[in-house]
Amino acid sequence: MSATLAGTAPLTAERVAERLREKFPGAAVRPVTGEAMRDVGIEVSADRLVEIATFLRDEREFEFAFLSWIAGVDWLPAEPRFEVVYGLLSLAHNARLNLRVRVPEENPRLPSVVAVWPTANWHERETYDFYGIEFTGHPDLRRILLPEDWVGWPLRKDSPLGYEEVAFTHNTPGRRLPSPDLTRLKPKKVTYRAQ
């Protein structure tokens, strides 16, 4: 939701794209719209990410000084495979923006925005932990939620859920079915200690 202060027009993706294109000519900037895309979204490319992030943070019209969240997305089988979405919040103008970057599978690397928003430290570690996307320039990139020696990137679409089969009579080998003789299935009368 982008509620605004009285008098200012609500933030739109086109406005942000326009300002970004005039400030960074040649950068690939694309507003993301769609029927059920309920937030303001801008897609940028990875090479100018840090500059664009700094601009969005410092520019008086936007002032996105608060990085709320970073989410990794796996779009298997689409190419490029991964996407990293930065959820930005402007406290001064009461607006939200989703900044999106596509990351290819062969080289899953992105520049880190820790210098722009220090809170990105743990968010990027979490995205690395789940998807294996490396953030260059991150001071301490290692696993955060899973054990340090875990192998694999669990939230990728080709990683399994790790579901353990629950043992029922139909899938446990060698298990005998209970006798159909109902008297033997009668519940045993239990006497409790304190009578």
Binding site: L146, G162, V166
Partner: peptide, 9 residues
């Protein structure tokens, strides 16, 4: 028994 969470973690 793992409860409602039957996954890798």
């Amino acid at each position: 028994c793992g409860g409602i969470f039957n996954n890798y973690a």
